[in-house]
Simulated scan of single mutants.
Amino acid sequence: MKILVIQQKMIGDVLTSTVICEALRKEYPDATIDYLVNSNTKPVILGNPFFNTIVEFKNEYRNNKKAFYSFLKEIKKSKYDLVVDAYGKLESNLISYFSKAPKKISFHKWYTQFLYSKVIYRNPEPITNASIAIENRLRLVYPEDKIATNIIRPKIFLTEEEKNTSKTYLEQHKITPETPLIMISVLGSEMRKTLPFDYMAKVIDEIVTTTSANILFNYIPNQEKDAKAIYNLTTQNTQKHIHFNVFGKSLREFIAILSHCDALIGNEGGAVNMAKALDKPTFTIFSPWILKKDWNMFEDGITHESVHLYDTKPELYWDKTPKEMKDQAIELYKNLSSELIIPKLRSYLQNLNL
């Protein structure tokens, strides 16, 4: 049996959707499973044993119709028996159709359901603490009555060489296991997913005051200016604990460094998902427009905790549609002050006993 799983979204979605591959491997142990993802997300799934091959969806396929058509013909030649489309957008609709697989499964959309042999309705409410994101993906493989008993956690696989190289890199900067090490997700993927800078600075100050930990910032090169702005808003004492120039130059290097951290704290996004996949404690600050129940994976109030504006000020949401919440995210963020975050954060850090 030959299976293709499609997920062309961002890093967090691609990592989370590996649970589909793992579930399929359990159901069809002898199957060949290919995982189709965007090229830039490939590093987060390297070494994963639950699929055989990574099929890269390259940028040129989006920008060049001829290249995309050639890619579709290659998909058809692969003769898949089953396609699981977890993406459900035009590109994956076409990939599913051109595959000519006898069985094609995706989430229900009234305007594309005719393309698939089976469509799955998303459940809007979680039945476990795994989150809606995990449970709905598993519905693409398991019947409803098997979801709760077949929960799977996303996993990241590092080589020993990667772990050792990152450990040496940290030691070269005088960062050793004797002092707690906390990664801060200081910036989201966009400003609508980023806690206001002055609030984040106060959060970092609290972390240092409570734990005296070494602090690393998670940011990409084009975010350096904003990351530095947050650094400059912290106290002089906090800045002594921040190793601003210690960071991964690639996604795999970041993951390897993260594997040596004691926790990740900060804005919700791919970094949080990666920390959880490495079995690292997390404290997540959700953007006001993101539905917490969708992505609060395995939250237990101890190892994994979070804050969301809705938890303290639900009245701000009563007359707003999801689109309005997204459009007004930056304004809503102003209500999620550090004073609302810090008490819960302090309790979380004390429970971790770093």
Score class of each variant (00 low, 15 high):
M1R: 04
K2C: 08
L4M: 01
V5Y: 06
V5M: 04
Q7W: 07
Q7K: 13
G12F: 00
L15F: 12
T16Q: 11
T18A: 05
T18F: 03
V19G: 04
V19D: 07
L24P: 12
R25N: 02
D30H: 14
I33H: 01
D34S: 07
D34A: 04
V37F: 04
S39F: 07
S39V: 12
I54H: 14
E56Y: 06
E60K: 15
N63V: 05
S70K: 15
I75E: 03
I75G: 02
V83W: 00
D85A: 08
D85T: 08
E91R: 15
S92D: 11
S92R: 11
I95R: 07
S96Q: 03
P102R: 02
K103W: 07
I105R: 11
K109G: 06
K109W: 09
Q113V: 02
K118Q: 15
V119E: 07
I120E: 13
Y121D: 12
T128H: 05
T128V: 00
I132Y: 14
N136I: 09
R139V: 10
L140V: 15
Y142V: 09
E144P: 06
E144N: 12
A148W: 01
F157W: 08
E162P: 08
S166V: 06
S166R: 03
S166I: 04
K167Q: 09
L170D: 13
L170C: 09
E178F: 05
E178V: 12
E178M: 03
E178R: 03
I182W: 06
I184E: 15
S185V: 09
G188S: 07
G188N: 06
P196R: 03
P196N: 06
Y199V: 06
Y199S: 01
Y199W: 00
M200C: 09
M200W: 10
V203W: 00
T209Y: 01
P221K: 10
K225E: 12
Y231G: 11
N232Y: 13
N237R: 10
N237T: 14
Q239A: 00
H243S: 15
H243K: 15
H243R: 15
N245H: 11
S250Y: 09
L251M: 13
E253P: 02
A256S: 01
C261L: 05
L264V: 11
I265Q: 02
N267A: 04
E268I: 04
E268H: 08
G269C: 09
V272N: 11
K276Q: 13
L278V: 08
K280V: 12
P281G: 07
T282L: 05
I285D: 01
F286C: 02
I290S: 00
K293L: 02
W295R: 07
N296E: 05
D300Q: 07
G301K: 02
T303Q: 01
T303C: 02
H304S: 14
S306F: 08
H308V: 00
L309T: 04
D311E: 15
L316T: 01
W318T: 12
D319Y: 00
T321E: 01
P322K: 05
E324N: 01
D327V: 00
Q328G: 00
Y333G: 01
E339P: 01
L340S: 00
I342T: 10
K344T: 13
S347W: 03
N353E: 04
